[in-house]
């Protein structure tokens, strides 16, 4: 029983990082109806910027977080203008393939600047884990959990309580009607890319400072986990993205414990395959949040 509870706790913490990745993915997918494969690599770019700054100057964690967020947002803007703005009408495959090309570009750039496979990243928290009765929780995991809740609340506020949010939801609902209402789809799309990539940058920072290391695999890992969680929750729904992320985290934590680490990813992809084949109702909605 205690193992089950501990796994659930670990799964929730892991799942909150997946939920954050899926949120950014879903924002972009909702606005453009396009998959942005360069989402993870943009996060990689931001985290490499932070690592480079750390190696060069040794500045503190708060600055590193800011650099990771800003670097990811800039990379996101670059991806939008280069891959998605030219293909806003039609050519979904062209935009996706172009974003794959930028994925390669970011990875090459990162490994050219910092060629080692592994870089140490300063720890978010130096002390040991918290104990809750017989359960233990890493402080890093707690921070991730809290960050996920705060980001969700902030995003909800932006989408439902601000002028910009009204414009974003209008574009998601009907780009044609949004333009006719005086909303620039191009401007909204660019700002959504920046916002989603900034959320990704924050998530990336929390992951690498929790792991205390950075590898070039972070880009692919972020894209895969984010996309998987987004698809589990049904494409294009923000609550779905959160649920998909948490579900993926729980699934991984439990299958790792009961079936071993080799089968962990296999189980996740098997579930996705089954869901795509069966298509339960929540995966068919084209809901606008």
């Amino acid at each position: 029983m205690i193992d089950f509870l501990q796994n659930t706790l670990d799964g929730l913490a892991l799942g909150s990082s997946y939920a954050l990745l899926a949120l950014g993915f879903t924002l972009i997918f909702g606005v453009l109806r396009r998959a942005n494969l360069a989402y993870g690599p943009a996060i990689l770019f931001g985290c490499y910027c932070a690592t480079w700054a750390y190696l060069e100057t040794g500045i503190g964690l708060l600055f590193l977080a800011l650099i990771a967020v800003a670097g990811s947002a800039l990379a996101g803007i670059y991806v939008e203008r280069l891959c998605f703005a030219p293909h806003r009408k039609g050519a979904a495959a062209a935009a996706m393939v172009a974003s794959f090309a930028l994925w390669m570009q970011f990875e090459e750039l990162a490994t050219l600047a910092l060629p080692r496979h592994l870089y140490a990243f300063p720890a978010l928290y130096e002390g040991g884990p918290l104990s809750l009765g017989r359960l233990t929780l890493r402080v890093e995991s707690l921070v991730m959990l809290v960050a996920a809740i705060l980001v969700c609340a902030a995003l909800w506020g932006v989408l439902y309580r601000s002028r910009f949010g009204t414009a974003v939801r209008a574009v998601i609902d009907s780009p044609a009607a949004a333009e006719l209402s005086g909303i620039s789809v191009s401007a909204v799309s660019l700002r959504v890319f920046a916002l989603a990539s900034a959320i990704g940058g924050l998530t990336g920072f929390l992951i690498v400072s929790g792991d205390q290391q950075l590898t070039p695999m972070l880009g692919m890992w972020s894209t895969l986990k984010g996309m998987l969680a987004m698809m589990l929750g049904g494409l294009g729904s923000l609550p779905g993205a959160i649920a998909g992320g948490v579900a993926l985290g729980l699934l991984e934590a439990h299958s790792q414990w009961y079936l071993g680490p080799q089968l962990r990813d296999f189980i996740a992809y098997l579930l996705l395959f089954i869901l795509l084949a069966v298509r339960p109702p929540w995966m068919n909605t084209r809901s606008a949040y």
């Binding site: 009204t166 939801r169 209008a170 998601i172 609902d173 009907s174 044609a176 009607a177 949004a178 006719l180 809901s287 606008a288 949040y289």
Partner: peptide
């Protein structure tokens, strides 16, 4: 527009 195009989910 002809087909009205209101934002259905808003």
């Amino acid at each position: 527009p002809e087909n009205r195009l209101v934002f259905a989910h808003m």
